[in-house]
Design a protein around this nucleic acid. Structure first.
Lengths: 228, 228
DNA sequence: TCGGATCCTCAGCCAACTCCCAGAATCTGG
DNA sequence: CCAGATTCTGGGAGTTGGCTGAGGATCCGA
């Protein structure tokens, strides 16, 4: 299947390259721009499946880019990136057309999850399935619900995000650094110890009996898979 | 099933694009126009299942557009959008032909509900079901009545609209921003705190005993579903 | 004009959550 | 088998988010 094309527009170099890497990792076909004009130009040639727009940008801000897209008849769904202080009132009305927004700082998995949710809702491009599965463990992203063997399991936001990341990468071993980078906010200052703690929480809540699903690979990281 | 085709005529760019997004989100096939002449032109080619007409427009106003539609023999049902100061009696005469009207500002769910009600009444196009159900909780949109376990429950207008939105999306988690955008008037300036208050009202009126139907998903939003 | 219903804000409370730490347990190379 | 490295776990401090009740403003029908 062809990957969904995502246009990423952010003037901050560091953040942009980080997001670009993360989205590529998740098999999106990413094109990034450091300003709105270039993105709009390119959009006249190639219509992306979705656009990620930073709100705070010099010259054209994210809202203005979106407005111009709309007046040109481009019905590309948008995910906005906003700072904490210009939330709420400025944001009002964004979720109407299936668009969404994220408040900085956010985690990369959060961004990917929102992008997929929007693609699913708008039916544009190729969206991933909302339901992840591993043996009798099921995670439904639309319902934000996790069940094990039919039983519903209550997870905190961080536990939920961590589990989703593990399930998206089941079979693959993930280092603590990788997990930190994807599941925790990108400005998080702590070390990998927090990952051990949360893996512990998950084990207690959904991996008490055999066969275990969460495995420690000593010196490397963790992985989610059946057997053993 | 094919979606109902809705013509939207409003000269205000901002409102028009907002309504277009909202109606598309609800799976209507929307075509929007910033003036009555273009809409009338297009109507000679494609007959929509319904037309949403802003009353206050330069050149041809909404009433005039409707009058010309009728003289041309087009029996398309109409929903008018009016400002508060337009007199009631002028409007009332218009609702005779199965048409309806909304006073600005209104909420998007209100508009969608009216459109569906008119489509149901006139039998034009494909209308959604008037009755929503979740376990022993029933909402009948035609009768504007809510019952739980057979008992009728009295709700204020806002409570009713919120419940309908939750029921239309049962199983899916809705963020406070989404709820605010869809259930509250589009010019509402407050924050998500009001949603908490009204969720509280609903819980007291119809979700006092187990099993709960309204669930809080901390850090994400609310959802209506059975069990837990 | 009056009274009740409704809408909305706000502040205080409480439970849930995040994160860190330190000691216990486990693993591994020599 | 020992020692060092790594991981696990429980406790707990500090923060956040959601719930609730009180109360003021507004609307609306009698």
């Amino acid at each position: 299947m062809p990957a969904a094309t995502v246009f990423l527009v952010d003037d901050e170099d560091h953040l942009r390259s980080m997001l670009e890497a993360a989205l590529s990792y998740h098999d999106f076909d990413v094109r990034s721009f450091d300003n709105g004009r270039d993105a709009l130009d390119e959009m006249r040639r190639v219509t992306p499946d979705l656009a990620v727009l930073d709100v705070m940008m010099p010259d054209l801000d994210g809202f203005e880019v979106c407005r111009r897209m709309r007046t040109e008849g481009l019905k590309v769904p948008v995910v906005f990136l906003t700072a904490k202080d210009n939330t709420e009132d400025v944001i009002r009305g964004l979720t109407l057309g299936g668009d969404d927004y994220l408040v900085k700082p956010f985690s990369l998995e959060e961004l990917v999850a929102r992008i997929n949710a929007v693609l699913r809702r708008t039916g544009a491009g190729i969206a991933t399935d909302a339901v992840l599965r591993c043996e009798d463990l099921i995670l439904d992203d639309d319902a934000h619900m996790v069940t094990k063997d039919g039983e519903e399991i209550t997870l905190s936001p961080t536990e939920y995000n961590l589990l989703r990341f593990l399930m998206q990468n089941q079979g693959r071993v993930l280092s603590k650094a990788q997990i930190l980078d994807h599941v925790w906010d990108f400005d998080f200052g702590g070390d990998g110890g927090i990952v051990e703690t949360y893996i512990g929480y998950l084990r207690r809540k959904l991996d008490r009996d055999e066969p275990k699903l969460i495995h420690t690979v000593r010196g490397v990281g963790y992985t989610l898979r059946r057997q053993r």
